[in-house]
Amino acid sequence: MSTPARPESLARLDRLVAALIAKGIVTESDLVEAQARTDRASPEVGARMVARAWLDPDWRRLLLGNGAEAAEHMGVSMAGAPPLGVLEDTATLHHLVVCTLCSCYPRAVLGYPPSWYKSFEYRSRAVRDPRGVLAEWGTTLAAGCRVRVVDSTADYRWMVLPMRPAGTEGWSEDQLAALVTRDVLVGVALPRLPVALAAE
């Protein structure tokens, strides 16, 4: 569970911030701006990058070749952000992203990581038992599809470019982007058609 911070930690943060402000190191507006900037990032950016890659081969090449440049084209400022790598799923290879050492996550295009991504269980198990973890998400891969776990250990941040689902021919970028959830971009889930459509 994401346990709330203890009162003494809230007080400790206040004291540290007050000391830094008193010394002229940071200002309250620095903190407010940094938080607002981080709050604006969301998986919708990553989803749109994927949807565009399904529609536009040139964009797909850019995305796979230089994810950070592609993100800049989406209006995301990547100055100071780690490089973004994009992992291309195929019919025979599925990628799953984890950071076993800490919690590296492509925050510029996905926003804050969810608590489970930072949990000891996910970090420990995804690399050793990826199929077990996928099963917990109800994710089943096609027979013959290999799993490549990507342990995000260093300077890159990684996002998955999944396969475009069958049955989406003629769909718009907006419609396609709606299929791409945060879990899909991490690789614990696959894009799924709404049940009503899938049944047709």
């Binding site: 569970m1 994401s2 709330p4 911070a5 930690s9 809230l10 943060l13 540290l16 911030v17 830094l20 940071v26 903190l31 407010v32 940094a34 938080q35 981080t38 709050d39 926003g111 804050y112 969810p114 608590s115 489970w116 949990s119 269980e121 996910y122 198990r125 973890v133 917990e136």
Partner: peptide, 19 residues
């Protein structure tokens, strides 16, 4: 099992993150 806690950081977490 991985506990599927989807919660984003609370106010404390976001402020530490911003700092």
């Amino acid at each position: 099992p991985v506990e599927r806690d989807e919660a984003p950081p609370d106010g404390f977490g976001k402020r530490v993150d911003a700092l």
